[in-house]
């Protein structure tokens, strides 16, 4: 399996897309840190990028890559290799290279200009989001043979998670403002990986404001490691679940 990952990785890392992505992230981070006198503000701007661009690129690149590797996958499938291994290798290859691009493009400047827990959480969230949206990309790809359709599904997923979902939930919260919604909010947040990534960073930069909320669950959530552990746990689930379904579908799929 490691061998296959190695070749998938090598293939992706050589492609211009991922290099361009890395360069884009790096230039943007570098620029933000140089333009902003306050590194915390730069991190905040970066957060917006991380929450929008990283899922978008991950899901689109993942989907396109999967369709482009159909022949390569066929080649591997005709070899004495387990399909599950092929699938996971492809996944890890794509996810790792996206995550690496992110770490180089955002992580390195962030740790250089603003070392500290906030940057660490930002980078961790970004890495998780890369993995999660690659996972969703692979799910979108195995759902249909049609490349255009697959990319369409991927884009819709991105739009849903990055904008639509929050809008709907905000609307619900506003509509039911008279009811206690603390626990419901936490639950609804955990149903969107982008929100989870955002909350992880918020726990660092806006803890002063977050601590302003009543409710024992909130307090314990923000007050200690429970919240962070929980958020990370949910992110892991967000990687695993789509990947599991995608893999199940892939193993039965006709190539």
């Amino acid at each position: 399996m490691n061998k296959i990952i190695k070749y998938v990785l090598y293939d992706i890392l050589r492609s211009r897309t991922i290099i361009g992505y890395t360069a884009f992230l790096f230039l943007m981070s570098f620029g933000l840190f140089n333009l902003e006198s306050d590194p915390t503000k730069a991190v905040l701007s970066l957060l917006n990028v991380v929450l929008l661009i990283v899922p978008l690129i991950s899901i689109i690149f993942g989907t396109i890559h999967f369709y482009n590797s159909t022949e390569f996958i066929e080649l591997l499938v005709s070899q004495p290799i387990n399909r599950r291994k092929i699938f996971l290798s492809e996944y890890l290859g794509v996810a790792l290279s996206l995550a690496m691009a992110f770490v180089v493009g955002v992580g390195v400047p962030a740790m250089l200009f603003n070392p500290g827990p906030t940057s660490i959480y930002l980078v961790t969230s970004g890495v998780f989001l890369s993995f999660i949206f690659t996972s969703l990309a692979f799910l979108a790809s195995v759902l249909t043979r049609d490349k255009a359709k697959g990319i369409g599904i991927a884009l819709m997923l991105w739009f849903y998670f990055s904008l639509l979902y929050d809008g709907i939930v905000m609307f619900i919260l506003f509509y039911f403002a008279d009811y206690p919604l603390d626990n419901a909010t936490l639950l609804l947040l955990s149903l969107n990986p982008i929100d989870l990534g955002r909350v992880l960073v918020l726990l660092n930069i806006d803890v002063s404001a977050l601590m302003g909320y009543t409710g024992a669950l909130y307090k314990s959530f923000f007050g200690n490691w429970v919240g962070i552990a929980l958020a990370f746990g949910l992110m892991v689930i967000w990687v695993m679940v789509p990947l599991f379904f995608a893999q199940r579908k892939f193993v039965k799929k006709d190539l």
Partner: peptide, 18 residues
Amino acid sequence: YRSKIGYMPQISRFPENM
């Protein structure tokens, strides 16, 4: 069992950057 088979597909497309 596929280790017993050599296969040449109809259209060969390989990883482009390899």
